[in-house]
Design a protein around this nucleic acid. Sequence first.
DNA 1: ATCCCGAGGG
DNA 2: CCCTCTGGAT
Length: 214
Amino acid sequence: MPTPLAYEEIKECFRRWQEADPAPKSELNYVNPYTLVVAVALSAQATDAGVNKATRALFEEVQTPQAMLELGEAGLIEHIKTIGLFRNKAKNVIALSRILVEEHDGEVPASRAALVALPGVGRKTANVVLNVAFGFPAQAVDTHIFRVSNRTGLAMGKDVLAVERAIEDRVPVQYQQHAHHWLILHGRYICVARKPRCPDCLIRDICTFEEKIL
DNA sequence: ATCCCGAGGG
DNA sequence: CCCTCTGGAT
C-alpha cells in the first residue's frame, strides 16, 4: 500500500503537471453553465467521449432549461439512450431544469448548497460546476481522482470526502484551481485503473506504486 | 449496501 | 467473458 507523499514531493508533482499543461480544461462538451450541469450529470459512470457523442446533437437543439422542458423526457431519452443509467439521468435533468426555471430564473446558481439541492446533482457534480463554470478552487473527487490520490499518496482517504479534504489540506494553494483537471487527466490517460502506464508517467520517480505492482 | 445501465476495452 | 467509465438516490 502506498504511503503519503511529503509536502515538497506533492509540490513537485504539480509543478511538473503545470509545466506540461499550463491551462488544463474539461474534455466534456458544453456551451454555457446550464449545459455544463447537464453534461456532468450525464457523465456519471460513463466516459466523456460517450457523453460528448450524445450531447453534440442535444446541445445544438437545447442550451437552456426552458428548451429542455420543451424537448421533454421522452425527447431527451432519444438523445441519451446510448449512455448508461439513461432513464434516471433523463428524469433528473428534466426535474432540475424545472427547478432552475421556477426557482432560479433559468440560471445556474453559483453556490454548492443550491447546486446539491438539484436532483441528480451531488457534491462531486456541484464541485465540478463551481470549478469549471465559476472559477472556484473546488475539488471534485471522481473515480479517477480517488484512485490517483490514493495510489500515488498525494492525498489519501477512505472515501471521496476524506480525499477532497486531503487535497485541500495538502495541495499547495497556487495549484488548487487546476488540480482537478491535472489529476483527472493523469488518471484518464496515465494512471489508468487496470494497467497503469507508469513508463509514461511524469511523477514515476516520486510515486511508489509501480514497484508494488511488479 | 444496492440499484441504475450502455459503450468500449482487454 | 469481465472491468471501467468525471455518481446519485434510496
